[in-house]
Amino acid sequence: MIALLIILVAALLGITIWQISKIFKLSQPVESDDSQIANNKDNEKQGKLFLVFIVFLYGLMIYSFWELSKFYAPGASDHAAEYDQLFFISLGLIMFVQVIIQFLIHWFSYKYRGQKGRKALFYADNDKLEFIWTIIPVITLAALIIYGLFSWSKIMNVEETDETLVIEIYAYQFDWRARYSGEDRTLGEANVRFIEGVNQLGLNESDPYAQDDIITTELHLPVDRPVLFKFRSQDVLHSAYFPFFRSQMNVVPGMITQFGFTPTTTSKEIRNSEYMVEKVRNINEIRENNDNLGPDEKEYEFEYYLLCNKICGVSHYNMQMKIVVETEEEYQKWIEEQQSFGELTAQN
């Protein structure tokens, strides 16, 4: 593919140089009017090109929506549906405006292209018009702002109830760890100053709450149970981005940040969803034809993931953690198999 690109670029460069010389030859001696100011002929031609261009632009927009909107990741959290609704309402609205405005810009550029003898209309002001196109955006935006702010406060104000699962997400160059609070349902005290040996997350070993904390490399979440994440960084800024759950929060050294959501679709369910089956089949086809991959790397199965979305160093591009959303029973079974912090330190 890269070779093809290089060839394409070389060819384009060739065409560029060829075109420069050709255009220059054509433009210089033959033309009688060489003032380099647009004349009637230029206006005619450039005006028409604006029509061609709007066709291209609409074509590109249609192609993008037709072919590329399928990339929009499916949602799998309680607020994903609400998020998507607001997103598509906003998108629909701006595309509506976009289609009209672009048409006007390009149509006027064509329709009023300069012609000898045409008189432009001296039209300097119209308060009524100005008022109209101030007040319409004001009303539309007010509606969008109010709608957005309701969603925002609903998403951001997470109330901790008895049911809520509190998990610490710990970020460091270039990986993630999850810390579950264990049976006491309280996360033990932690600070990077306690980091030593196996105590990689800097838990305070003298804090009794810390002993039953469970540190894992995968994030397992029971479906339909609210989760509140507490984010902590070891070194630099990171950002915990959960694309399928429409959730993101920066991880800031020296400060605990938080974000909450309720996963609503298990990994199994989303894997079997029509959308994902189709997508994964497509990806596997692509991977099958990719010679850079070893035979055992070719088969891809969908898993939720969490990725780092704030530049954090050279391996920023590969800072990810697998997320498994499962039933409550599966989750309980998994968590019981994990080693607690107390067991870990006792072992070493």
């Binding site: 006027f108 550029s109 009023y112 292209r113 209309l121």
Partner: peptide, 9 residues
């Protein structure tokens, strides 16, 4: 642009 005499330089 509307009702102008656009000189497309």
């Amino acid at each position: 642009l509307w009702k102008g005499n656009l000189q497309l330089n």
